[in-house]
Design a protein around this nucleic acid. Structure first.
Lengths: 118, 118
DNA sequence: CGGCATCCCTGTTGATACTG
DNA sequence: CAGTATCAACAGGGATGCCG
């Protein structure tokens, strides 16, 4: 490990303005948590996602995908055809995140009953 | 596995009204994601959490803790003293969730740079 | 100290309509 | 089909003050 590494400030989401706080918010977002796992088994189109995620609006889907794209978690692909054909897929970074979220999902399913009656 | 198990309907957060959707929202909450890891190394008091989590308000802290308590993730302990002394700790269920969230945190820290530039 | 109740404002969100 | 734009509605969340 080089000296420069030792000088790095490690991200701390408990500090309000630390960028990692924002990242926590993006990842820990209700819709992100639903969109990301859907992309694991291949690219999906806008209308497909809209149909698969009951209750999401076009607006929220677009907004969620854009934010995930900003953070390099999802890649948007426009085929330039008419009628329009666009799909979204996980980047390698997004794939690795999807694995972690998958664990979260499994946890929820596994502990579902116990969570409910509390 | 008994027959009854096979008849269980598995929770599906992609259905708007499925309770698992609500659970996803509770867990995937900005403040929950910050509070839970803090409780891993022992009980914490209200004022302590307020100080540790920069930017959280009393109102949001209370609301977050209550919701986590509802889902049996956190236990509130009132010592019945005067002045008041109350602390919050993870339940066993909460502990197991904390492990998963810890993985998410580690992922964020590990991929911090890559997320930022995007 | 812990935390509830209130007020109030802002931002998020949904619905609708429109465009390339 | 994929998205944008606009508007109205509502809830999230902060600030303050009060109480056990």
């Amino acid at each position: 490990m080089g000296l420069s590494r030792m000088l790095d400030v490690k991200p701390d989401p408990y500090v309000a303005l630390c960028p990692s706080r924002k990242i926590i918010e993006v990842i820990g977002d209700k819709w992100s948590l639903l969109v990301i796992p859907l992309l694991i088994d291949g690219p999906k189109r806008n209308a497909e996602l809209l149909r698969l995620i009951e209750g999401i609006s076009q607006k929220m889907l677009t907004q969620t995908l854009k934010r995930l794209e900003e953070y390099n978690l999802v890649a948007r692909r426009d085929y330039g055809e008419i009628p329009p054909r666009v799909d979204y897929r996980l980047t390698p970074l997004g794939q690795s995140l999807a694995d972690v979220i998958g664990q979260l999902d499994n946890w929820v399913i596994k502990n579902f009953e116990e969570l409910l009656h509390a």
